[in-house]
Simulated scan of single mutants.
Amino acid sequence: MKKSLLGVVSTIIPFVLLVLIINFFLGLVPIDKIQGLPLIFPIILCPIGAIIGFVSYRLHKDKLSLIGIVFNIILFLFPIVYHVFGILAFGV
């Protein structure tokens, strides 16, 4: 199984963002300085991670970069769905 550095990076980006989002909701480690940024970071960083995964997939055709692409796309859609649900449910 070939692993490329770009494939690993494209997989690490959504994993780190997911950990930040889980920490934001559960408050396991209090990080008061970044407040709501874990919900905004995926909108900025996931397209970059998906592009890195796409480049890696074109070069190496490995599953790790394909997994990175899929996770980045899913995590990119999470804040959008979260905000739409918040508007529909709470009207804020």
Rank of each mutant, 00 (worst) to 15 (best):
L39W: 03
K61H: 02
I48H: 03
F85P: 00
S65C: 12
V92D: 02
F54R: 03
S10I: 07
F85D: 00
F41M: 14
I31L: 14
V92Q: 04
F90M: 15
I12T: 14
A89G: 03
L45E: 03
I22P: 06
F41K: 00
V70A: 13
L5H: 07
F76H: 01
V92E: 01
L26G: 03
F90K: 11
K3L: 15
G53V: 11
V81T: 15
K61Y: 05
P30Y: 10
V16C: 04
L17F: 04
D62F: 05
F90T: 11
F25V: 14
R58Q: 03
I51C: 14
G86Q: 07
S10D: 14
L17D: 02
F54C: 09
Y57W: 10
G27M: 11
K3E: 15
I51R: 08
L17H: 10
G36I: 07
I21W: 08
I73W: 01
I52Q: 09
I40H: 11
I80H: 04
P14F: 01
K33V: 10
S10K: 08
L28Q: 10
V29K: 14
F41E: 02
F71K: 02
F85I: 00
G53W: 06
D32M: 04
F54N: 02
L37N: 14
F15V: 15
V16L: 13
G53T: 12
F54S: 13
L28H: 07
Y82F: 12
V8P: 02
S4A: 06
L37E: 10
G36P: 04
L26I: 15
G91E: 00
G53E: 08
P47K: 00
F54T: 07
F85R: 00
F76T: 00
L64P: 13
K2H: 15
F15D: 12
I52E: 08
V70D: 02
H60Q: 09
F78H: 03
L6T: 10
P42N: 00
I52A: 12
L17T: 02
L6V: 08
I67C: 11
P42M: 00
I67R: 03
I80D: 07
I67K: 07
I80F: 01
G36H: 06
V84S: 02
P14S: 04
I73T: 06
I87W: 02
G36Q: 05
F78D: 01
D32H: 13
P30H: 14
L77D: 00
D62L: 01
S10H: 12
R58N: 11
I73N: 01
G7R: 02
L66P: 12
F24R: 15
F41T: 05
S56G: 15
I80R: 04
F76C: 00
L64H: 11
F85E: 00
G49S: 05
S65Q: 11
N23P: 09
L75Y: 05
L66W: 13
F15S: 13
G86N: 12
L88E: 00
A50L: 09
I51V: 13
P14K: 07
I13W: 01
A50D: 06
A89D: 10
G53Q: 08
M1L: 05
Q35T: 13
L37G: 12
V84P: 08
K2E: 14
I69W: 01
I48D: 09
T11F: 15
I44R: 06
G36V: 04
K33N: 04
L37K: 14
P79K: 01
F76S: 00
L28C: 11
V16M: 06
I67A: 09
L45S: 09
F54L: 15
I13S: 11
G7P: 08
